[in-house]
Simulated scan of single mutants.
Amino acid sequence: MRRDIRMSRMLHVLIHMDRHVETVTSEQISKMISTNPVVVRRLMGGLRQRGIVASEKGHGGGWKLTQPLTEISLYDVYQAVGAPPLFNIGSNAEPSECLVEKAVDAQIDSSLKEAEARLFEQFSHISVEDLAQDFENRLEEKHNSSTCTPEAFDQPH
């Protein structure tokens, strides 16, 4: 089953918007994340509804951030992209009279709800800025390490 990558893509876009471009068009974003501009507008529309971005029409228009990345949590972005299902496992869609199936479904549903609550709690405490800082740290490490020197082979990667 395919993974839902909308959240990952929008986090990617938000960090680029903050670090590299002030205003970006749907067409530019679509090239960056290899999708159709219509898909981009739909996803960015969710971010706009949550107050994360704004759009301007016309020449020189495009999408802009409306708040700093420190104020945007992963949970905010998750909600903005439509709160996609987190797990591919779960109970049968059709209710069953089988008591074994009911017991299995009850435990799976309970466990998934608990895991989902924990994940949402974590998402609410991680800002997009945290991810951007991780990117910058990785970029700095890459620039500071040289793969062409003999010493580089002795260093952990």
Rank of each mutant, 00 (worst) to 15 (best):
residue 56 E to I: 09
residue 126 I to L: 14
residue 102 K to A: 00
residue 26 S to D: 02
residue 17 M to T: 02
residue 57 K to S: 14
residue 137 N to L: 08
residue 8 S to K: 07
residue 120 F to T: 02
residue 24 V to M: 15
residue 38 V to M: 13
residue 45 G to D: 06
residue 98 C to V: 12
residue 120 F to I: 02
residue 28 Q to N: 07
residue 143 H to M: 04
residue 71 E to D: 13
residue 72 I to R: 11
residue 16 H to M: 06
residue 75 Y to A: 14
residue 60 G to L: 02
residue 19 R to M: 13
residue 143 H to E: 08
residue 44 M to V: 05
residue 85 P to E: 12
residue 108 I to E: 10
residue 73 S to D: 04
residue 132 A to H: 11
residue 34 S to I: 04
residue 142 K to A: 15
residue 121 E to H: 15
residue 60 G to T: 03
residue 1 M to N: 11
residue 156 P to N: 05
residue 98 C to M: 02
residue 117 A to F: 04
residue 82 G to M: 10
residue 144 N to L: 15
residue 2 R to H: 10
residue 18 D to H: 14
residue 131 L to V: 10
residue 138 R to S: 09
residue 92 N to C: 05
residue 43 L to F: 01
residue 126 I to A: 09
residue 87 F to Q: 05
residue 21 V to M: 12
residue 79 Q to G: 05
residue 79 Q to N: 04
residue 55 S to L: 00
residue 34 S to K: 12
residue 90 G to K: 04
residue 98 C to F: 09
residue 150 P to V: 00
residue 107 Q to K: 06
residue 116 E to C: 03
residue 2 R to N: 07
residue 35 T to M: 14
residue 123 F to D: 04
residue 140 E to I: 11
residue 105 D to I: 01
residue 124 S to E: 12
residue 46 G to L: 10
residue 1 M to I: 01
residue 136 E to D: 12
residue 31 K to C: 00
residue 127 S to V: 03
residue 60 G to I: 02
residue 89 I to M: 15
residue 56 E to P: 06
residue 5 I to N: 12
residue 56 E to N: 11
residue 119 L to M: 08
residue 23 T to D: 03
residue 78 Y to F: 14
residue 13 V to E: 01
residue 62 G to W: 00
residue 62 G to F: 12
residue 75 Y to M: 11
residue 78 Y to H: 15
residue 22 E to K: 13
residue 45 G to N: 02
residue 81 V to P: 02
residue 100 V to Y: 04
residue 65 L to Q: 05
residue 43 L to E: 10
residue 1 M to L: 08
residue 137 N to P: 00
residue 89 I to V: 15
residue 132 A to G: 07
residue 4 D to G: 08
residue 81 V to Q: 05
residue 40 V to G: 15
residue 93 A to E: 14
residue 9 R to N: 15
residue 50 R to Q: 14
residue 80 A to Q: 09
residue 140 E to S: 03
residue 12 H to E: 11
residue 36 N to G: 04
residue 118 R to Y: 12
residue 82 G to I: 09
residue 145 S to W: 10
residue 26 S to Y: 05
residue 121 E to R: 10
residue 131 L to R: 14
residue 51 G to L: 01
residue 88 N to T: 07
residue 124 S to M: 00
residue 34 S to D: 14
residue 127 S to I: 03
residue 119 L to S: 06
residue 24 V to P: 03
residue 104 V to Y: 11
residue 121 E to V: 01
residue 15 I to G: 04
residue 132 A to E: 06
residue 104 V to E: 08
residue 34 S to H: 13
residue 2 R to I: 07
residue 35 T to V: 06
residue 139 L to E: 13
residue 124 S to Y: 08
residue 143 H to F: 08
residue 143 H to T: 07
residue 40 V to Y: 10
residue 21 V to I: 14
residue 100 V to L: 14
residue 145 S to A: 12
residue 50 R to P: 01
residue 50 R to M: 09
residue 108 I to V: 15
residue 46 G to C: 09
residue 87 F to A: 06
residue 154 D to P: 00
residue 27 E to N: 11
residue 16 H to Q: 11
